[in-house]
Structure formats: C-alpha cells, structure tokens
Nucleic acid binder design. Structure first.
Lengths: 151, 151
DNA sequence: CTAAGATTGAGGATCATTCTCAAAAAGGTC
DNA sequence: GACCTTTTTGAGAATGATCCTCAATCTTAG
C-alpha cells in the first residue's frame, strides 16, 4: 500500500500540457481523479473511485476518465471483472510495469518484470511480424493468482 | 487462416467427459460452437459466431458458452473491444500460446512464445510471491499491434 | 463585469450480457 | 414404440456498466 500524499509538480505540469493539447482544462474533478490514482498507487475501478471520493458524480467521473484517457494521462486496463480499471499512464510515472491480478477478488497490483524478461518481451514484440504479417508494437503481461488478502 | 474441417475424436471425447462431470450433455448447439472455434483456429466473439452460423440463437449461444467455460472446454478472453472473445481451452488443443491483438480492428490471433521467453515467464510467476504476498499461478501475455489486414 | 465557451451532474439511453419461462428435445423404462 | 422425467432451447424481458443529453454552473478572456 504505497500511499503517497501529493502529486509532484512535474506530473501536474505534464497533465496540464497533455490536456491543453486537446483544448481541455485541468479542472477540479480531473485533478481529483489523478490525485486519487497517484495516492492509491494501483489501478482503480470506478466504484472504488466513487467510494474514495463521495463528491464525485458518476457521469462526470466516466466522462473525465475518457477525457484523461484521450489525453494519454490515464490508461484503461482490460479486466475479467465487470468494471473497467484505470491507472496513470506509464510514461507519467516513469515506471514500466505489469500487473498481478487476483482471481478471487479482482484487485490489481503493479509488478516490475526482471530486465531479462523485459529484454525477451521486447524481442518477442520485434519478431512477431513473422506471424501472418502482424506488426507488434507493445506488450502486456499479467500474472494471475491470489492476493495476500484472499489467502 | 488455418481452416480445419473436423473435430478430432479425441477432442470430442474429452469435451463429452468434461461436460459429463457437470451433469451436462454435449448437445448439437454446443457441438456447433466447439466445431466452429476448432475450424476457425482463433478466438471469436459472439457476433462472429452468430454470423458464421445463422442457426445459432443468441441467448442459447451465450448460455452454452458459459456452460462450456464452466466445463473448462472454452476460455473467455479479456479484450478492449465491446465483445467477449472465446477460444478452446489450451489443454484441449495441447498448444500453449499467447495473443496478437490488432489495435485497429480488434482481431485476435494466436502466437507461440519462444522457449526462452516461456522459461522466464514461468520464473516470473514463481517469483511474484515476493511482492506483497501475492501468489501467482499463471501468466497472460498479449502483443499489441496492427494485423495484416489493417496495414 | 460580461459574454462566450467549457464543464458539471442528474437522469435517460444504449447495448452486451444474463435471466425467464413455456415449448421442444433427449434419455430412460417398460 | 409410447410415456414420463429432466434437460435444453429460444424469444423476449431484465440487468447493469457505460455513455449521452441538456439545462445550470463555472472559467477565462477581454
């Protein structure tokens, strides 16, 4: 539980400029979402966000998540559960990572792969072109298992 | 496009016995779904299945996909797109694989990782326990890019 | 301060998926 | 083959996460 308290100025500035590129403002609601994800340090679903900040309106939250996603500030994860899951974009946190997903409760935690593994993943991305003309650009790795709480 | 024509007897028998474990029959509709996925050789969404076999009723198809998933005959993928995606369970095809996902059209193709990469993935699964008490049991790897059609 | 434009939020609309239930089909038994 | 029991089917309704609408409110520029 890496509970961080304040969004660094540098991150703040980057978010401002990415939103500005799309002609969007960094409003109070949007700041709340970014600050919450920063503080939590792991991907969150919409119900989690609404619970964490009762002042958020559901429709505005959804809309702002989409705006922040389009601005490449947030990234939407694909999950097994019924809810989508958002995290800060990797290039904002400077922390390339993958996910540990609990099969029991669905919680998602971050996980850093070994340099060896990352190197091979990069290689796999480069080589995938051989298969049926597919050009790979990126990779996504999840480890599935059981979290500390559910054991 | 690896279009295979007939489901092997061995696969057929395995499906029968897995359904039997749950007290379920291998009905005509369920055979259609399995045969279709076998013939197609890649994960398919529900609309794709309905288009491939106009005789399928939507509600029955959804229900049978769930039954086949519970029997561990099929596996449901998580995707970015609006539709879920199903494939034959890995241990039925005897073919451990990952996925190439086209960011443009969403099509999913199979992809076999190198032995080196698989070895490191297995190692990562084993080591993940160190992180916050998480016990990993399995891994999921997707390569994201552009398919042959969309280029 | 004011006008123009962006954002908000309550509620409604959408749509993939699941559920309901009456009709049809499949087994088992004689 | 006919009969009974249980499962499966499929058309349509219900559910629920997400997205849209629009009048009210807030921001920013001038």
């Amino acid at each position: 539980m890496s509970s961080r308290t304040r969004v660094p100025d540098e991150l703040h500035e980057t978010v401002v400029s990415r939103l500005a590129r799309l002609g969007q403002r960094y409003t109070t609601n949007r700041k709340s979402l970014v600050a919450m994800l920063w503080a939590e340090g792991r991907p969150m679903t919409l119900p989690e966000m609404l619970e964490a900040d009762a002042a958020l309106a559901q429709s505005s939250a959804y809309r702002n998540l989409v705006v922040l996603e389009e601005a490449q500030v947030l990234h939407r994860l694909v999950t097994t559960g019924p809810f989508a899951c958002w995290e800060l974009a990797e290039d904002l946190t400077g922390h390339h990572h993958h996910h540990l997903i609990c099969r029991s409760c669905g919680v998602v935690e971050d996980f850093t792969a070994s340099p060896d593994l990352e190197r091979l993943l990069g290689k796999a991305v480069g080589q995938a072109g051989s298969a049926a003309g597919f050009v790979a650009e990126d990779h996504r790795l999840d480890l599935l298992g059981t979290c500390n709480n559910c054991r």
